[in-house]
Amino acid sequence: MRRTWPLLLILFATPALTHVPARLHADAVYVLPRPEVSSALFGEFLTGAEHFVVKVTHATRFGAPIEILVPHQADLFTHRPAWAVVGPGLPAPNAEELAALPAPLPAGFGAVVDLNQVDPRPVIFESVMRRFYWTSGPLAVVLPKGESELWIWSPGHTRGKFGLGYGVEEGGGYMAALQEWSFYAY
């Protein structure tokens, strides 16, 4: 018991915050509930053909870093999921990016695309999950005012887990991460 209260203190009373974690499913659009705070959105490509969609709504154009993480495991070395922000007012993607998108761009929409091609592939230690991940490398983007979408797909149709890191202002706590710890922490 003497050792329990410090743990509880850390879980409930420390200022240590985290990205708000959530689990994505390819068959359902996920609406980001608090786009002004940072999120860690985890999912898994079971077939490699999935297209994950996250809806984001901002009252003004909003700058945020975005990156995609993959568990640092040998069998996922070639697993490089890509991400895109898709919405009105964004620039036109280049030809390679346009060809790689998992769906046609809606009329009047542009996209900021990261095909996760940084080489050598950076590795980070994620301090909440206490795990190493490959990262696409964070990219600062400005999301449009109003509604936009984050698309996540696997250009090489590889299978495996991923986590999309979005934003900076941490608003989650360790308890949220514990809810699906076995999935998040590979």
Binding site: R61, A140, V142, V168, E169, E170
Partner: peptide
């Protein structure tokens, strides 16, 4: 103007070295 508050001096990016590292790369 776009909301870039987190990236400017005194913004959330600079609260600790760990956050800063990600923002710098971004």
């Amino acid at each position: 103007p776009a909301n870039l508050d987190r990236f400017v001096e005194g913004g959330f990016c600079w609260n600790n070295p760990s956050l800063a590292e990600g923002c710098i790369s971004a």
